[in-house]
Computed example of a mutant assay.
Amino acid sequence: MPRRVDHEERRAHITAALLRIAGTRGLQAVSMREVAAEAGISLRLVQYYVSDKPTLLRLGLDELAARLDRRIRERAAARGAGLAPRAVLEVVLTSILPVDEASRLDRMAWSAYFAVALTDPALLAGATNHPDALEDWLTTVLVRARDSGDVNSGREPRTEVAALLALTNGLSDSVVGGQRDADAALAILDYQLDRLFDRSTPA
């Protein structure tokens, strides 16, 4: 009896091929034909599952966000239930940093998407705005931390979160660019979180 095709599995296989290309050669190297070759399937099969390149790129962006979400959930589970706000921020931000080969390639793919957004924003029109959603959620975490007295009451939560995300993204680029290693980036991030959660530090 022929094996039943798992359509979600096939679509995930195609998306993974796209992200391998994006993480190693950039999105300028992405075409339906190149993705088919990377996935080891026919072009017609790729076109059956994905109607056009913009749809393919949006699937890749959604998968990058899903991978980050899975890393966050795995690290949070390893830390146990009831994480304090500082631990929540630490888990999320360190999940963004490229600390191994898989997260390094994901970071390269994120950078490829960012470059496309700068030069050809129409190509990603309608894509889910994952960065804004993450910033909104972390802001609610820091609001609770401020209201509970874990951080100085003069801190402005959204500004602090935006600064932490900007720092993390900058550190990520410095790691993939070879300026510093992952351990150094983690130490800098830990230092900044210590300052934020030190209630004696002026806002």
Rank of each mutant, 00 (worst) to 15 (best):
S148C: 10
L43M: 02
S172V: 04
S31N: 04
A133L: 15
V161A: 06
L164S: 04
P54E: 06
L43T: 01
D190Q: 14
R73E: 15
A84R: 13
L142W: 05
S172N: 01
S42D: 05
G170M: 06
L124M: 13
E90A: 13
L43W: 02
M32H: 05
L89H: 07
Q47A: 10
L105N: 02
P131N: 10
A65Q: 12
R146G: 11
T55E: 15
P98K: 05
R33P: 00
Q179R: 09
A185Q: 07
L45E: 14
A184Q: 15
R195F: 11
S172W: 02
A36E: 05
A203D: 14
G80M: 10
P2M: 05
L171G: 03
V46A: 00
L83Q: 13
R180A: 03
L83Y: 07
D52Y: 04
L93G: 01
D198V: 13
T139V: 07
A122I: 07
W110G: 01
L56M: 15
N152Q: 12
L105M: 12
V5N: 01
A87C: 07
L97T: 02
A36C: 11
P131R: 05
I41H: 09
D190Y: 09
E38M: 12
L56I: 11
L193G: 09
S148D: 15
K53W: 01
P98V: 07
S153L: 12
R25E: 15
T55L: 07
I96C: 05
